[in-house]
């Protein structure tokens, strides 16, 4: 099982989790994970610690790419349109973008709940995806 990027998400028996970082001082969360000082300009926090993000969130918006995206994306042949959803995670106060898995565009709605899962890119490695609530 190859992940398309190391350190941004994990896949285990308890499901797929996005890996962010949390400021030890103020609790601000960041995704993708970042080291160094807290991104909040007035926070004195100097280190960010790894944290798992909530697996469920609500769709902030979504779109369907009707034309194959260019390289370095590897499009399936024949091309199947990629659906993207931006999902709001309430506890972390962030919106995270991801591909959508096993949900037709007609089934998507702004505000609906989705759950993190993962799926393969056309050339094999796994990436996090938003899917149906289990």
């Amino acid at each position: 099982m190859t992940l398309a990027i190391e350190g941004w998400f994990t896949v285990g028996p308890d499901g797929t989790h996005l890996l962010g970082t949390r400021c030890g001082s103020c609790g601000t969360v960041a995704f993708p994970p970042r080291g160094g000082p807290c991104p909040a300009p007035d926070c004195p926090g100097q280190s960010m610690e790894q944290t798992r993000l909530s697996r469920r969130g609500r769709v902030w918006s979504y779109t369907v790419a009707r034309y194959p995206p260019p390289a370095p994306f590897v499009a399936a042949e024949p091309y199947t349109p990629v659906t993207l959803a931006a999902v709001e995670l309430a506890r972390e106060g962030i919106v995270v973008l991801g591909q959508v898995k096993d949900l037709a565009p007609e089934e998507l709605e702004v505000g609906m709940e989705v759950e993190l899962t993962c799926g393969p890119l056309a050339d094999g490695p796994l990436v996090w995806m938003w899917g149906r609530v289990s």
């Binding site: 990027i5 918006s61 993207l84 973008l97 990436v127």
Partner: peptide, 25 residues
């Protein structure tokens, strides 16, 4: 900017589409 294409296939119009859908909602 490289990664958003590689991992998500997120082109510029994809972001415009997200904003437009959000506006509709």
């Amino acid at each position: 900017d490289w990664l958003r294409f590689r991992l998500l296939g997120a082109t510029n119009p994809a972001y415009f589409g997200l904003y437009a859908r959000r506006r509709m909602a």
